[in-house]
Simulated scan of single mutants.
Amino acid sequence: MLEESTGNFSASRNVYDWYQTQTHVIINVMIKNLKESDVKVRLIDETLDVSCDLADGSLFSLHFNLFKPIYVSESSWNVTPSKLEIKLKKTDKKRWQSLEVIPEKGAKRNNTATIEVESSQLR
């Protein structure tokens, strides 16, 4: 069973960061020693889901409701020894105010930036 750990996991360190260029949004997920075969990235218009099978047998996952739509076919991801880099192609050259949709005042946030792990023994 997956356990939501936004308090436990992300409080101890930043799991991901992001920045943007005129044409792309780049997300770096800071997990070392990932194997490409253990990473699954799913992109659908304005949604990004990431799951990684970690070396200790646990599962790590992220879900984002992106701020704007992306070109899925022109987006990519790459595993390096120190991180997973996800490069999202913007549909326009406008600056994103945030990585995710900003809810209207008084509206509830649903399933955004959810971080889940199966084990709290992440290193």
Results as ranks from 00 to 15, higher is better:
Thr114Pro: 00
Ser73Gly: 03
Ser76Tyr: 03
Met1Phe: 11
Asn78Lys: 08
Ser51Met: 10
Arg109Glu: 15
Val72Gln: 13
Ser51Val: 07
Asn28Tyr: 02
Trp18Lys: 04
Phe64Thr: 03
Leu59His: 04
Ser75Gln: 09
Ser51Ile: 04
Val39Met: 05
Ser12Cys: 13
Tyr71Leu: 06
Ala11Met: 12
Glu100Ser: 13
Val25Ile: 14
Arg109Thr: 15
Leu43Gln: 07
Asp56Glu: 08
Thr23Gly: 02
Ile44Asn: 09
Asp56Pro: 00
Ser98Ala: 12
Leu88His: 05
Thr47Cys: 01
Glu4His: 13
Met1Lys: 11
Lys93Asn: 09
Leu84Ser: 09
Phe64Pro: 02
Ala113Lys: 13
Asp17Asn: 14
Lys68Gln: 14
Leu43Val: 04
Lys83Leu: 13
Lys35Val: 07
Arg95Cys: 03
Ser37Val: 09
Leu48His: 02
Glu74Cys: 08
Lys90Ala: 07
Asp17Ile: 06
Glu46Asp: 10
Lys68Tyr: 10
Asn110Ala: 13
Tyr19His: 12
Glu4Ile: 08
Tyr71Thr: 10
Arg95Glu: 11
Ser58Trp: 05
Pro69Gln: 05
Ala55Tyr: 04
Glu74Phe: 05
Asp45Gln: 12
Glu100Phe: 04
Glu3Cys: 11
Glu100Lys: 06
Asn111Tyr: 07
Asn111Met: 02
Thr6Met: 15
Glu74Ser: 06
Thr80Lys: 06
Val79Trp: 01
Trp77Gln: 06
Lys32Phe: 05
Val79Ile: 02
Val50Tyr: 00
Lys94Phe: 05
Ala11Gly: 07
Leu66Pro: 10
Lys93Met: 08
Arg123Glu: 09
Met1Pro: 11
Glu118Gly: 14
Tyr19Ala: 15
Ser51Gln: 10
Val50Cys: 02
Ser37Lys: 14
Glu100Met: 08
Ser37Met: 10
Lys35Trp: 09
Asp92Thr: 15
Met1Leu: 09
Asp38Thr: 01
Lys68Ile: 04
Leu48Ser: 04
Glu74Lys: 15
Glu36Arg: 04
Gln121Trp: 11
Ser58His: 07
Lys108Glu: 12
Val72Met: 04
Asp38Ile: 08
Arg95Gly: 06
Met1Cys: 10
Asp17Glu: 12
Val15Met: 15
Gln20Lys: 09
Gln22Ser: 12
Ser119Gln: 05
Asp56His: 07
Val39Ala: 01
Trp77His: 13
Val72Thr: 14
Phe9Ser: 13
Leu54His: 00
Leu66Thr: 02
Val79Tyr: 01
Thr23Pro: 00
Ile26Ser: 10
Asp53Pro: 00
Tyr16Leu: 12
Ser73Ala: 03
Lys40Leu: 12
Trp96Thr: 12
Lys87Thr: 13
Lys35Thr: 11
Lys89Cys: 04
Val25Asn: 10
Thr47Phe: 05
Tyr19Gln: 14
Gly57Met: 07
Ser98Glu: 01
Met30Asn: 15
Val72His: 00
Glu104Arg: 11
Thr21Glu: 09
Lys32Asp: 14
Arg13Glu: 09
Arg123Trp: 12
Gln22Lys: 15
Val117Pro: 04
Val29Met: 03
Lys35Gly: 09
Asp53Lys: 08
Trp18Glu: 13
Ser119Ala: 14
Lys87Tyr: 00
Gly106Gln: 06
Thr80Pro: 02
Ala107Asp: 03
Leu99Val: 01
Ile27Pro: 07
Phe60Met: 10
Glu104Asn: 09
Thr47Pro: 00
Arg95Met: 14
Ser51Trp: 05
Gln97Lys: 14
Leu2Cys: 05
Cys52Phe: 00
